[in-house]
C-alpha cells in the first residue's frame, strides 16, 4: 500500500458517501444517471466474485469490496424507491438518461474476451468489470452535458470519482518502481477512464476556478 492508493480508495469511498448524502439530504435524484449507478452494481458484483473463493487478500481489501457492493446496491435501491415517492422526478431522471448502455456492456464483454490474464470464468468477469468501469461514467457525463445545468452535488460526486481514478495512476507508477509489479489491463483501462474524466476536470476547473457556467462539449 502506498499513499496514492490509500488516498485513491478514500476518494472513491468519499464519492459514494457524497452521492448517498445528496440523495438523502436533498431528497432529490435530479441529475443522477440511473444507468451509471446500475453499471456500478454490475461492475462490483462481477469484479469481487473472488470474495466467494475465500482467498482473502486482507481484511481491508475484503471490507472495501463488501462496502462497494453494498453501497452500489443501496444507491440503486434509493433511486428505485423514488419511483413511488417522487414519480415525476423519477420519470424525468429516466427520460434524461438516454445513453445506450448496451454498447458499453457489449464493448466491455468483447474487450474482456480479447484481453484477459486467463480464459477462465473469474478472470473474464474481472476483465469485463475493469473495461466496464472505464466507461461507466459516460451515461452520467452525457446526462450532465445534455441538461447543461450544474447540480453542484452531482458534480462533487463526479469530481471525487475522477480524483480516485487519477490517483491510481501514480499508484501504478509507484508500484512499478518499488514493487516491480504492473497490472497491464488495469493500467490501460485506467488511463482510458482518466482521459474520459479529464474532459470533465477541464470543465470543472473552468467552472470552479473561473466561475463560468458548466457545459460539457
Amino acid at each position: 500500500m502506498n499513499l496514492f492508493r490509500i488516498l485513491g480508495d478514500l476518494s472513491h469511498l468519499a464519492s459514494i458517501l457524497i452521492l448517498i448524502r445528496t440523495i438523502k439530504a436533498t431528497d432529490s435524484i435530479d441529475g443522477i444517471s440511473f444507468k451509471t449507478q446500475a453499471l456500478y452494481v454490475i461492475i462490483f458484483f462481477t469484479r469481487y466474485l473472488d470474495l466467494l473463493t475465500f482467498q482473502h487478500i486482507s481484511i481491508y481489501n475484503s471490507l472495501m469490496k463488501l462496502f462497494f457492493i453494498g453501497s452500489s446496491l443501496y444507491i440503486v435501491i434509493l433511486l428505485q424507491r423514488s419511483k413511488a415517492i417522487q414519480p415525476i422526478a423519477y420519470r424525468e431522471m429516466i427520460m434524461a438518461d438516454t445513453f445506450k448502455v448496451q454498447y458499453l456492456l457489449g464493448g466491455s464483454l468483447i474487450m474482456a474476451l480479447l484481453f484477459n490474464y486467463k480464459f477462465s470464468f473469474f478472470e473474464i468477469l474481472w476483465s469485463f468489470s475493469i473495461w466496464l468501469e472505464s466507461v461507466a461514467i459516460l451515461p452520467q457525463l452525457f446526462m450532465l452535458s445534455k441538461s447543461g445545468k450544474s447540480k453542484s452535488l452531482t458534480i462533487h460526486y463526479i469530481f471525487a470519482l475522477g480524483i480516485y481514478r487519477t490517483l491510481y495512476i501514480p499508484n501504478w507508477i509507484w508500484r512499478y518502481f518499488v514493487e516491480g509489479k504492473v497490472d497491464k489491463l488495469a493500467v490501460i483501462s485506467g488511463i482510458v477512464q482518466t482521459l474520459i474524466y479529464s474532459d470533465f476536470f477541464y470543465i470543472y476547473y473552468k467552472k470552479v476556478i473561473k466561475g463560468s457556467n458548466l457545459q460539457l462539449p
Partner: peptide, 10 residues
C-alpha cells in the same frame, strides 16, 4: 494458477 487471481487492487 494462483497468480492470475492476485487482484489486490479495488
Amino acid at each position: 494458477d494462483e497468480e492470475d487471481l492476485d487482484h489486490d487492487e479495488l
